[in-house]
């Protein structure tokens, strides 16, 4: 599984960081998403799915 983030769509709500700070961070300047681990496994994969579901701008997607 691979996490793909569309930083052009991202609105910096930070919901992904709240879901799991091991997977996501935010750019210090403009608040947009920074993916820390784009190939999560196990419970991190569950967290990635939750982050995709709640992202308010649907800027996150999972592939593979």
């Amino acid at each position: 599984m691979k996490i793909v983030a569309d930083t052009g769509r991202c609105v910096g709500a930070g919901q992904c960081v709240l879901t799991d700070p091991r997977l996501f961070d935010q750019d210090e300047d403009d608040g947009t998403v920074v993916v820390l681990d784009d190939a999560p496994e196990g419970d991190l994969a569950d967290a990635a799915r939750e982050a995709v579901e709640i992202c308010p701008s649907q800027a996150l997607s999972l592939h593979g």
Binding site: G12, G14, V17, P21, D25, Q26, D27, E28, G31, T32
Partner: peptide, 15 residues
């Protein structure tokens, strides 16, 4: 909208 929001977003990150 995007640039206006991003100008101030850095002040409101989770960190």
């Amino acid at each position: 909208h995007g640039p206006a929001r991003r100008a101030v977003l850095g002040e409101f990150t989770v960190k």
